[in-house]
């Protein structure tokens, strides 16, 4: 349910943004607001984590899980990136990426 709300607000936001896109200010203000919303949410996450002894006690376990997952994500990306380079290698090297005009 919550997931639907999250996606719904995102889509409504996009429509709002398209509607007001001629006002350059909207973009600037939304960037500032987004930063502060992220700060607020991370602060709130910090508060609830601090109140949750289970998380504090298991912090090293969570750290290891995070390390493993980031290794997986990095390894997978690097491996496929290497394959892509082998595939298109020459042309990407010369043209500065797949960005020919």
């Amino acid at each position: 349910m919550e997931i639907l709300f999250v996606i719904g607000f995102f889509i409504v936001g996009i429509f709002f943004g398209r509607w007001f896109h001629t006002f350059q200010k909207v973009k600037l203000v939304s960037e500032k607001l987004m930063m502060w919303a992220v700060y607020l949410l991370l602060f709130l996450l910090g508060i609830s984590v601090g109140h949750n002894p289970q998380i504090i006690e298991n912090f090293h376990t969570l750290g290891w899980q995070a390390f493993l997952l980031s290794m997986g994500a990095l390894g997978g990306s690097l491996f496929l990136g290497k394959l892509l380079m082998l595939w298109y290698g020459k042309s990407m090297d010369k043209s500065g990426g797949a960005y020919e005009k």
């Binding site: 919550e2 709300f5 999250v6 996606i7 607000f9 995102f10 889509i11 409504v12 936001g13 996009i14 429509f15 709002f16 943004g17 398209r18 509607w19 007001f20 896109h21 006002f23 909207v26 973009k27 939304s30 960037e31 607001l33 987004m34 919303a37 992220v38 607020l40 949410l41 709130l44 996450l45 508060i47 609830s48 109140h51």
Partner: peptide
């Protein structure tokens, strides 16, 4: 009241709305 889970949810909805506005208004 800062620990209220609803507060985080509302803040998250607000964030998603703002992210959307940022995406939509970016030419």
């Amino acid at each position: 009241w800062l620990l209220n889970k609803n507060l985080s949810s509302y803040a998250l909805y607000l964030l998603m709305l703002i992210v959307g506005v940022g995406v939509g208004s970016d030419r």
